[in-house]
Simulated scan of single mutants.
Amino acid sequence: MSTIDERLAELGITLPNVVPPVAVYVPAVISGNLVYTSGQLPMVEGVLPATGKLGADVSDEQGKQLARQCALNGLAAVASVIGSLDRVTRIVKVVGFVSSDPGYTGQPGVINGASEVLGEIFGEAGVHARSAVGVAVLPLNSPVEVELVVEFA
């Protein structure tokens, strides 16, 4: 078992299968020593567990859990192109999109779900730059979407 696999087991986290694209793109690409993921929806076994907007249809806590799932889906995409998450040297950037009801301003707290799980898994290497952006609507009416930029060796 790898170090990251051991850490995931300690945390009780099972890395999901790579989410198949819902349009014309690939889940992740490598450029130099960076992996860029496509926007990851919070799919669980091919299904969105919730739809709608934060501040109307989805609670902050539920949104945070959905952002966590997006990050795990992103890590699955990273692993699919580099072979092992043990090769990750740093989570460089997280970009989170939150489908938001007008006036909703809790986007940073929602995207903390992604940031926190990355920190739990990678420790200091999981500390990253980040954007949390409110948007009118996301693909498939998803409440959240997360992109990762990951450095590897």
Score class of each variant (00 low, 15 high):
residue 57 D to Q: 13
residue 100 S to G: 11
residue 48 L to W: 10
residue 42 P to F: 01
residue 85 L to N: 05
residue 97 F to V: 01
residue 43 M to W: 13
residue 42 P to R: 05
residue 71 A to H: 00
residue 52 G to Y: 08
residue 80 S to G: 00
residue 74 G to M: 07
residue 51 T to G: 14
residue 54 L to M: 14
residue 61 E to S: 14
residue 91 I to Q: 01
residue 59 S to C: 10
residue 87 R to T: 08
residue 63 G to P: 01
residue 78 V to P: 08
residue 91 I to D: 01
residue 91 I to H: 07
residue 70 C to L: 05
residue 44 V to G: 13
residue 76 A to H: 04
residue 77 A to M: 07
residue 69 Q to C: 00
residue 83 G to L: 05
residue 38 S to H: 13
residue 56 A to W: 11
residue 82 I to Q: 05
residue 51 T to R: 15
residue 29 V to M: 13
residue 67 A to L: 04
residue 70 C to V: 04
residue 57 D to H: 14
residue 49 P to K: 06
residue 61 E to A: 15
residue 84 S to L: 09
residue 47 V to D: 04
residue 36 Y to K: 12
residue 81 V to P: 03
residue 39 G to Y: 12
residue 38 S to W: 06
residue 37 T to Q: 10
residue 73 N to V: 00
residue 43 M to G: 02
residue 100 S to L: 03
residue 49 P to H: 05
residue 47 V to Y: 10
residue 98 V to S: 01
residue 76 A to T: 02
residue 74 G to S: 08
residue 58 V to R: 06
residue 30 I to Y: 13
residue 97 F to G: 00
residue 102 P to E: 14
residue 95 V to K: 14
residue 37 T to W: 08
residue 48 L to Q: 07
residue 100 S to A: 15
residue 85 L to W: 03
residue 76 A to F: 03
residue 87 R to Q: 13
residue 68 R to A: 01
residue 75 L to R: 02
residue 69 Q to V: 03
residue 56 A to F: 13
residue 69 Q to D: 03
residue 45 E to W: 09
residue 92 V to I: 08
residue 83 G to K: 12
residue 93 K to N: 14
residue 99 S to I: 00
residue 35 V to S: 07
residue 97 F to D: 02
residue 68 R to D: 00
residue 85 L to K: 08
residue 34 L to Y: 13
residue 29 V to H: 11
residue 51 T to C: 11
residue 94 V to I: 15
residue 63 G to F: 02
residue 87 R to H: 12
residue 71 A to S: 01
residue 39 G to E: 07
residue 62 Q to M: 14
residue 65 Q to M: 14
residue 35 V to L: 13
residue 78 V to W: 12
residue 63 G to Q: 02
residue 30 I to A: 10
residue 65 Q to H: 04
residue 83 G to E: 10
residue 33 N to R: 14
residue 68 R to Q: 11
residue 99 S to V: 01
residue 33 N to H: 15
residue 99 S to A: 15
residue 69 Q to F: 01
residue 96 G to K: 01
residue 62 Q to S: 11
residue 93 K to P: 01
residue 103 G to R: 09
residue 49 P to R: 05
residue 31 S to C: 02
residue 99 S to E: 10
residue 56 A to T: 10
residue 31 S to E: 15
residue 95 V to G: 00
residue 69 Q to M: 03
residue 79 A to K: 15
residue 90 R to P: 00
residue 41 L to N: 05
residue 93 K to C: 00
residue 52 G to S: 08
residue 66 L to N: 03
residue 31 S to P: 00
residue 47 V to H: 07
residue 95 V to M: 06
residue 93 K to D: 12
residue 59 S to G: 12
residue 101 D to T: 08
residue 86 D to G: 06
residue 85 L to A: 07
residue 61 E to R: 14
residue 42 P to Y: 06
residue 82 I to N: 07
residue 71 A to R: 01
residue 79 A to C: 08
residue 77 A to N: 06
residue 100 S to P: 03
residue 53 K to G: 04
residue 72 L to P: 08
residue 32 G to E: 09
residue 68 R to F: 02
residue 70 C to S: 13
residue 99 S to M: 06
residue 103 G to D: 06
residue 84 S to Y: 07
residue 37 T to H: 09
residue 58 V to C: 12
residue 76 A to L: 06
residue 34 L to I: 05
residue 85 L to F: 07
residue 58 V to W: 03
residue 101 D to F: 13
residue 52 G to A: 10
